[in-house]
């Protein structure tokens, strides 16, 4: 049995092997598999989706339809640091729009774009569930809460140069 696919490493297959006994069928592993696969390159290429399809044992179209339903699966490459600013009601009431405008200016990109150096991607996010500490944003897997222009500026500066 192959332990690696076209693009997915052994790490993926080892991680999945551990999860298999926790579900009554393999299809239920599609979401965990996509999360795991995305860890490898930060996004899900056509080849990655095919590897996942082969692993699960379904037509690649079925993986594509699932992956494209959820906003957290990146079907296009994203920057090293993915900033997702929540602009939903609670954050919007406390100034998220200004933060978004500021971030666009500071990074010199529009929301939805990636900086030319590939360091930052900026997105608008729906409610993050951090409403009592609004405004909030996600920076990769981390939440940054009680955000204001100063702390946003500091965060971007800090992550501009060195490792994200």
């Amino acid at each position: 049995m192959a332990t690696t696919g076209k693009v997915l490493s052994e790490k993926f297959y080892t991680a999945m092997k551990k999860l298999e006994p926790r579900y009554p069928n393999k299809k239920a592993l599609i979401l965990p598999a996509l999360h795991e696969a995305q860890k490898e390159h930060g996004w899900l290429s056509k080849e990655t989706l095919e590897d996942v399809a082969n692993y699960i044992g379904v037509h690649p179209a079925q993986i594509r339809e699932v992956a494209s339903f959820y906003t957290m699966y990146n079907l296009k490459p994203v920057g090293k640091m993915h900033l997702k600013i929540c602009t939903n009601v609670a954050c919007c009431l406390r100034g998220a729009d200004e933060l978004m405008e500021y971030a666009e200016k500071k990074l010199a990109i529009k929301c939805g774009e990636t900086t030319p150096d590939g360091r930052f991607t900026l997105s608008e996010e729906e409610c993050l569930g951090a409403c009592t500490t609004a405004p909030a944003m996600m920076a990769n897997d981390d939440y940054i809460e009680n955000l204001d222009i100063n702390s946003l500026s500091d965060f971007i500066e800090k992550n501009k140069g060195g490792q994200a």
């Binding site: 379904v58 037509h59 690649p60 179209a61 079925q62 594509r64 339809e65 494209s68 339903f69």
Partner: peptide, 22 residues
């Protein structure tokens, strides 16, 4: 018996298609 026609994306943008136009 073949799930080749699928819905991708969601909401108002749902596209019903084969994968990459196969």
């Amino acid at each position: 018996g073949i799930r080749e026609m699928v819905a991708v994306k969601r909401g108002n943008n749902v596209d019903i298609t084969t994968i990459d136009g196969e």
